[in-house]
Computed example of a mutant assay.
Amino acid sequence: MAGHSERYGPGVPKELDRYLVPGEDVVFLLRRHWVVLAEPFLTTMFGLLVLAVLSAWVDGGVETALTLVWLLVLSRLLVAAWEWWYELVVATDKRLMLVHGVITRKVDIMPVSKVTDMRYDRSVTGRALGYGKFVMESAGQDQALSTINYIPDSDLHYQQISQLIFDPSAPRLTQKTGGSSRVPVVEPEEAWWRRKD
């Protein structure tokens, strides 16, 4: 995933040039929320703590075996972080994509035109940490991509996907800038605050 796309510019990995067709506009591109790494990280830290406590009470052979077990747990964390880094959720004006896999790259696609309904779920943990889950349904067909979990800043991305699905001709929601999202505002010409009575 080295380099940036020549077609789409900085911030879009060069790899996406292979999957996106000319004229397709990227609405958003993101990685899943960092919470997907929480369990492997906490398991690794807990294992290190257990190893530190037990190493004072056990002999060298057992300590070596425990260290090897902890190194396996650490390698699990590193693989999970590597997978998280290489996984991308992409929404374009034509489709939703999940690009994933480290050794074998896979691209799951849901065409926006096929989505008939979409559900947006936020658990208590999701509301507290800022992520959500999208479940998309299509007209009686099984699609490669139907659920996207751990979407960061999910309120904004839900609005963007909803707009693509249900009102594709409307002005697009702008990308997040400076920590806040903005929706284009159209003010009426004869609003009370503009009248010169």
Rank of each mutant, 00 (worst) to 15 (best):
residue 151 I to N: 00
residue 126 G to M: 08
residue 21 V to T: 01
residue 106 K to T: 08
residue 152 P to N: 09
residue 185 V to C: 04
residue 136 M to R: 11
residue 117 D to V: 04
residue 117 D to M: 06
residue 134 F to K: 09
residue 41 F to P: 02
residue 52 A to P: 01
residue 78 L to S: 13
residue 191 A to P: 04
residue 65 A to G: 10
residue 117 D to Q: 10
residue 63 E to R: 15
residue 65 A to N: 06
residue 7 R to F: 09
residue 167 D to T: 10
residue 180 S to V: 10
residue 116 T to R: 13
residue 125 T to K: 11
residue 58 V to K: 09
residue 69 V to E: 02
residue 124 V to C: 09
residue 48 L to E: 11
residue 4 H to E: 15
residue 118 M to C: 09
residue 26 V to N: 01
residue 150 Y to T: 00
residue 145 L to H: 12
residue 29 L to G: 02
residue 125 T to N: 05
residue 16 L to T: 04
residue 185 V to W: 03
residue 135 V to S: 15
residue 107 V to H: 05
residue 142 D to A: 11
residue 50 V to A: 11
residue 6 E to P: 09
residue 44 T to G: 07
residue 119 R to V: 11
residue 106 K to S: 08
residue 12 V to A: 05
residue 79 V to Q: 06
residue 50 V to Y: 07
residue 181 S to G: 12
residue 147 T to P: 01
residue 189 E to L: 05
residue 23 G to D: 00
residue 87 E to W: 06
residue 160 Q to N: 01
residue 162 S to N: 13
residue 53 V to K: 10
residue 193 W to M: 03
residue 99 V to C: 01
residue 65 A to L: 15
residue 98 L to K: 12
residue 70 W to N: 10
residue 184 P to W: 00
residue 10 P to I: 09
residue 85 W to T: 05
residue 17 D to N: 08
residue 178 G to N: 13
residue 100 H to F: 10
residue 172 R to Y: 02
residue 154 S to M: 04
residue 132 G to M: 08
residue 27 V to I: 13
residue 83 E to F: 06
residue 122 R to I: 10
residue 162 S to I: 01
residue 89 V to D: 01
residue 22 P to H: 01
residue 54 L to W: 14
residue 148 I to C: 05
residue 42 L to D: 01
residue 80 A to I: 01
residue 92 T to S: 11
residue 104 T to W: 13
residue 25 D to W: 03
residue 45 M to T: 07
residue 171 P to K: 05
residue 89 V to I: 14
residue 69 V to D: 03
residue 117 D to K: 03
residue 9 G to F: 01
residue 174 T to Y: 06
residue 39 E to T: 00
residue 54 L to Y: 12
residue 196 K to A: 04
residue 55 S to F: 09
residue 126 G to I: 08
residue 182 R to A: 01
residue 163 Q to A: 05
residue 16 L to N: 04
residue 66 L to A: 14
residue 166 F to H: 14
residue 119 R to W: 08
residue 130 G to D: 06
residue 57 W to G: 08
residue 51 L to Q: 12
residue 186 V to E: 06
residue 137 E to Q: 12
residue 146 S to C: 10
residue 114 K to M: 10
residue 91 A to P: 06
residue 62 V to N: 09
residue 113 S to D: 14
residue 174 T to L: 04
residue 125 T to W: 14
residue 110 M to I: 14
residue 71 L to A: 15
residue 57 W to L: 14
residue 111 P to Y: 07
residue 73 V to P: 01
residue 189 E to T: 03
residue 112 V to P: 00
